[in-house]
Design a protein around this nucleic acid. Sequence first.
DNA 1: GCGGAGATGCGAAACGTTTCGCAAAACCGT
DNA 2: ACGGTTTTGCGAAACGTTTCGCATCTCCGC
Lengths: 356, 356
Amino acid sequence: MSSLRDVAERANVAVSTVSAALNGTRPVAAATKRRIEQAAAELGYRPNVLARGLVSKRTRILALLFPTPHSGFGLTEMQFATGAAEAAAELGHHLLLSPESHDPVDALRHLTTLGLVDGVLLMEVRLDDERTAFLAANEIPFAMIGRTRRPDGISHADIDFAATAEAAVSHLAGLGHRTLAFFNHTPDAYAAQYGPTVRTGAEFASAARQAGLTYIDEFRADTAEEGRAAFDHLVAAHPGVTALAVISDQAAVGVIAAVAARGWSIPRDLTLLLVLSSGRVAEMFHPRLTTLEPPSAELGRLGVRMLIDRLASGGDAPPEQRLVPCRLVLGDSSGPPPADPRARGGRTSETTGARP
Amino acid sequence: MSSLRDVAERANVAVSTVSAALNGTRPVAAATKRRIEQAAAELGYRPNVLARGLVSKRTRILALLFPTPHSGFGLTEMQFATGAAEAAAELGHHLLLSPESHDPVDALRHLTTLGLVDGVLLMEVRLDDERTAFLAANEIPFAMIGRTRRPDGISHADIDFAATAEAAVSHLAGLGHRTLAFFNHTPDAYAAQYGPTVRTGAEFASAARQAGLTYIDEFRADTAEEGRAAFDHLVAAHPGVTALAVISDQAAVGVIAAVAARGWSIPRDLTLLLVLSSGRVAEMFHPRLTTLEPPSAELGRLGVRMLIDRLASGGDAPPEQRLVPCRLVLGDSSGPPPADPRARGGRTSETTGARP
DNA sequence: GCGGAGATGCGAAACGTTTCGCAAAACCGT
DNA sequence: ACGGTTTTGCGAAACGTTTCGCATCTCCGC
C-alpha cells in the first residue's frame, strides 16, 4: 500500500501539501494540485482510515446495534439493516453490525470505548430504553429507528403509527365495518414497552374510537396456535366482529386456519388486515392479504442520514425527527362486511369434519 | 478517554511496560503487573483500536460483502449476517456490513484498500465468482459462505447439497413416490451460475436417478404466478407426477393455489417439499410444509470462524471446508402418493367454479 | 566480592495521517 | 525600487498504540 509519503515524493512536495491538496483542506496552487493528483492516481493511493481516524477523531464508521432476536428476526429487521448499510455507503460511511449480548448497555460500553465508531444507530427501541440514557450521559452521538416515550431531543425515524392506524381504520370503516378487533404481540412485548406494540395498540384504539367503531384488542403469543385460539375466543365473545387486524405473521396463519375451519371465507365473512408486515410475507397468503407495510428500508436510510448529519454538524444542529406511515397495500382479504354477521356461523362442524 | 500513557503515569511505569503487561506480550513482574492492572481498571482504560491497528496491521474487523438483493432478500441472508455477527463478537472481532454496488469487484477494491478490514467474508457466491480472483490476486484473506466451482484452496462453509438432495429423495422414495419434479430458480439465476441453483438442481437430478425415480425439472421466476403456471404445465405434461420440490417461497404459493384450484389436496394428491427455505416461512403455509431448512446461521458462524482461524495462522494453516446438510423438517405436506395418480384430475372445473 | 546470566523495565522509533505555525515567494500599488 | 499583503508550501508535532534494542537490577556460584 502506498502512503501519503510515497505520493509526496513522487510529486516532489511535502506530505502536508499532499494532504491539503487531496482533502481540499486549504488552497493549493492549481498546477501543484494537478501534479499531486496524478501521482496519487498513478500509485493508486488510498488514505488509511486508521491513521486518519486516529488524528481526526472521526472514523466514518457507524454501529447498528441489533438485539438478539426478540420474537425471531424477520424481514423487517433485515430491511432496516440493508437500508442503513446502503445509505451509509452512499454517504461515504461504513456500518458495523453489532449484536447486543445479554446486557445491551454493557455491549454499548464495550463498543463505544474503542474509538472505533463515530456514532450509534439504535433499533428495536423500547419506550423507556435504557440505552439512550447511557448514550446521552456519555455524549455519544446516536439516532434511533423507533423512539422512546419522550424522544424530543433525539434524532429518530419511526413509523407514524397514528397515521397508519387512521388509514387502516378509515379503510375498514369505509367498507362498512362497525366492529374491529386487533391482535397485538404478546403481553411480554407490551410489558417490555416495545414501541410498535404499545403505539400500534394505542393508535388503533384511538382511531377506532374516533371513527365510532366497536373495538376489541388482545395480546397473544406470535404463533399460529395462539392465533387460532384467539380467533375462536374472539368470535365467541363478540359474534358481531367483521374486521380483524393482526400484527404477527404467525398469528395470521392461525387465524386463517380458524376461519377456514369455521367454513368461513375471506373476505366474504371476515376482513383480515396484516399490520407491520412486509409485502413479501403478505404475498404468501392466499388470498393475498391487505397489508400495512412498514417503510423499513426507508427508516434505516433515514436513521443513518440523520446520524451522519448530526455528526457533520458537530451536534449543534437540532435533532431531526421523521415519522413515516405504513403503506396500505390492498390485497384480496378486505371487503365489505357480511349483511348479517350472526348468520355466518352455522357451517362449523360439517366443514371441519370434511377435512381430517 | 484515558490512554496508555495515563495508565503508565498512574502506575509509575513506562508506557511500553503497560502495553506488555496488558497484552502479555512479554513477562512483567507480578507486582508491577498487578499495579498496572489496577490502574487500568481504575481509569476504565480501553485500548484504542485505531492506534493498535495502525501499528499492528490487524484491526479485528471483518467485512461481510452482501450483494444487492438478487431475488429480494430473505430470512436466509439475514441469518447469515446475524450468525456471522454473533460469531465475530464471540471471537473478539467486529463485522462490517458492506453492500456491493453495481460493480462487486470495485466495491471490494474500495473496501480493502482502506486498511480497515483484516479479511472478507463472501456470500451469494457464484460458481465462477470474479471476486475470488481479485481477493486471491491481492492476497486478501477471505472465506466464503457458498463456494465456487473449484474451491479447493479456499476456506468455505456451504450447504451439503448432495446429502440434502439424497435425504429429500429418500424421504420421498420411502413414501412410495416414483416420479419427482423440481422447480428451481429462474433461468437467469442458473445462467449466473448461482451456486445453490446449480448445485441443488444437479444433486436432485443425480439423487433421483440413483433412486430410480422419474425426474423432471423446470426453471421459473420466483413468483406465485409462475409457480401456478409451472404447475399446470407440469401436470399436463406429466400426469403421473406425485411429488414436487420447490425452491422458492413465492413459487410454492402459486403451486398451492394451483393445487387447490384443481380440487386437489396436499398431501393426499400431491406431496410438496419446500427446499432451502427457513422454518418460519414453512409455518406460514397451510398445511405446514415439509422443508429442507438451510443451516444459515451456522454457515455464517462457520464462515467467520474459518476466516479468523486463517488470520490467526497468518495464512499458513490449510484452508478449511465444511459442508452442512439442510435439516429435513417434516411438515404435513408429504405423504404417500395416491394409488392412481391419473384419477386425481376430474374435479377441476367444479371446484374452481365454486370459488370466485 | 565479583563476573555473568536472567529478569525486568525504559525510551525511542514507527505506523500514516491531520493540523498548525512559519518561512519563502509572488504580487500589488505607489 | 520598496514595504506590505497574499499566496503557497514546508516541517514538526500529535494521535495512541506496538516493537525492539538496550540499560539496569537482582541473584547466583565461586
